[in-house]
Amino acid sequence: MSTYSIKDLEQLSGIKAHTLRIWEQRYNLLSPKRTDTNIRYYDDADLKLILNVALLNDNGFKISKIASMEHQELRDEVMKLTERSLTHDDQIHALTISMIEMDEERFDKILSSNILKLGFEQTMLNIIYPFMSKIGVLWQTGAINPAQEHFISNLVRQKLIVAIDGQVTNGGGKKFLLYLPAGELHEISLLFACYLIKSKGHKVIYLGQNTPNEDLNSVYAMHQPDYLMTVVTTSPSAEQIQEYLDNLSERFSEAKILVSGYQVIGQDLRLPSNVEQLNYIRDIKERLEEIERVPQEK
């Protein structure tokens, strides 16, 4: 069981700590526990409650009404609201609740309904990426545990793989080699890039996570791609990234190299002439728009 401070509840729900304390006193909404040293903390049940309360409150329910609801009534209202609401923030909120509960069925239902309403690409750009960004920060600060982060990442990864399999190209277009450096395991952005590239009719050679240098060299020599793309989240480190990019530029001087990720964005890097930095996931889409779209087979 995870434990949370009132600041964690504020970050996850968007409700100010001051407001939470008022609700706690006025409506007996929360019952914080205390450590042996008398420090207040909250558990998973408290967090799930506050996430549900925040969603209803944001949609016009008065806090006095919410506080009088039984647990099942509260949950039912949230489910109904999630199913009919089209706002991105509400959907991200609902996904956060699914993550905390580790409820795969609910997560899948929310994701599938949004894909039907918005399409896969817009769901990724407007809901999944902001959501993943949010939980990435929460994971780094310890507000959620690694199991919850892995649970969500694997579900999103499954959706991406299915979507990629549904993209059929006719063999034309540019050739992209996608990989993650040795030691790098954060694959969501690279998978989405794969989806976008294939959706534009280009060919993708996908090597995925933790690619050894020798494997990258041999595949490049075999296929001679027009573009290499990688996302650097943790490896190589910020201290090593400049040397890594310089080396990459020299080894694959004939290719255009597209790089993104936490260790690249916002760093004071000297990019070689054949290396281009992509700051956001939308940059990938915009970059692809600059490359002539390949007609798809009917």
Rank of each mutant, 00 (worst) to 15 (best):
R287V: 11
Q11R: 13
I50E: 01
K174F: 10
I257M: 01
L51N: 03
P295L: 09
Q140V: 09
D36I: 09
G60E: 07
R26A: 02
Q72M: 12
V219E: 08
E297Y: 11
I50R: 01
V156G: 00
V204K: 03
L51P: 00
K7P: 02
M229I: 08
Q167D: 07
I92E: 02
K256E: 14
R293C: 09
A193Q: 03
A94Y: 04
E70Y: 12
S253K: 12
G142Q: 07
Q209T: 12
V219W: 05
S85L: 11
H202L: 05
V168D: 06
I22V: 15
D43V: 12
I135R: 03
K7M: 09
L49Y: 06
A94E: 02
K16P: 01
Y220R: 05
M229V: 08
S133E: 13
D226R: 09
L288Q: 05
V231S: 15
A255P: 01
I50N: 02
S260V: 08
T82C: 06
S235Y: 14
R106S: 12
M102H: 05
S235G: 05
N145M: 11
W139H: 05
R21I: 10
V232R: 00
Q91R: 11
A163F: 07
N170P: 01
F176K: 05
L271I: 11
T230W: 02
Y129V: 11
S13H: 03
D46G: 06
S113C: 07
D36Y: 08
L118F: 10
I197P: 00
N52P: 04
D36G: 15
K159V: 10
T3H: 10
T233N: 08
R84A: 09
Q91P: 00
Q11C: 11
D246M: 11
L228K: 03
T234V: 09
F131P: 00
E187W: 06
I115C: 04
H150Y: 10
I265P: 00
F151M: 04
N217H: 12
A238K: 14
V275W: 03
H223W: 10
T35A: 02
D165H: 15
R157I: 09
D90C: 10
D46A: 15
K298M: 12
Y220Q: 04
A163Y: 04
D215K: 13
I50Y: 02
G201I: 10
I15H: 00
K16W: 05
M69G: 05
E104P: 01
N57G: 03
T35N: 02
R26G: 00
